[in-house]
Design a protein around this nucleic acid. Sequence first.
DNA 1: ATTAATTTTCATTTATTATTGAAAATTCAG
DNA 2: CTGAATTTTCAATAATAAATGAAAATTAAT
Lengths: 168, 168
Amino acid sequence: MKLEEAKQEFIQSWGILGSQWGINRTMAQVHALLMISGKPLSTDQIMDELSISRGNANMNIRELMNWELVEKVIVAGDRKEYFNAEKDVWKVATRIMYQRKKKELDPMLKVLDRIGNIDGDRRNADIKAFTETIHNIQTFAAQAEKTLDTVIRAEENWFWGSFMKLFK
Amino acid sequence: MKLEEAKQEFIQSWGILGSQWGINRTMAQVHALLMISGKPLSTDQIMDELSISRGNANMNIRELMNWELVEKVIVAGDRKEYFNAEKDVWKVATRIMYQRKKKELDPMLKVLDRIGNIDGDRRNADIKAFTETIHNIQTFAAQAEKTLDTVIRAEENWFWGSFMKLFK
DNA sequence: ATTAATTTTCATTTATTATTGAAAATTCAG
DNA sequence: CTGAATTTTCAATAATAAATGAAAATTAAT
């Protein structure tokens, strides 16, 4: 398969995948483009490759930098800014998980803390169902959080690293 | 806190969380409502609690049944259908992961298989960057898949279960 | 300091996604 | 069967999210 064709297919698929998971399609496409690029790209190059406006490119590049998936690269003797994506897929995955947890899961967990204690008789089926579900979500989230922390540290953890291999 | 107020807050938060992750807000709200309900609810009760139309309620209930998160309950002597949600949060999480993998990740991986082999010189920086990124995503996905399978089987797996406790 | 290059902002427009509600289809009790 | 209750469908509408593009702000070379 020709590179140009394959690149376009990858960018489109990554965009669709992102949009299915609540990530702006263009942001996912910019990310895809930078991940498969052999060198950093300028805003104009990104606009051109993806046929998007300057404003759109700028906003999504900046958001990718917030997520720590893309970094600015200074090229000596060039006024323009260039952008480079993290290419280690493991780092990409853990950073996305970390950011989404912080921005989306944690606010939910704060709500659960606030609403977990209900006035009234605990024998009441409705109160029981509510309280137990809230509590179970909290317990699950706490476990998931520990696991995420462990996974994020896995690269620097010889034990987890070699243990994981057992499950491959 | 009063039960009714707490229920509403939970339903709203769960809806927001869902929409951030690419799940129809109403579908998440119906799911929330059924998870915290002490008893199965009819379509009319769901419409009433969430102030939504019949069509909307029907579509989202059906989608939740597709996801195997909600089941139909027949009440003797009642023409109406009632609905009940899976309340085990662990099962809820693994079912969601399994369904989303099947419907969203797998199609992406099929694309990667198709576009992974590129014509041309492998020394070329662009071809190299592309090929390596695709391959790394495939490798990562294969690992994640194994892990998900293991996790899904964890309930019936004494070893994983007790091992996980070490990381709590 | 001037100004040309570049980046950022944001009101307006466009595209996408979700909801409604009424008609059609289905179900089931008598 | 009949018809009332219930569920399902889907074209039309509404709500939400994303993209544009030109003006404003910033940057840096001379």
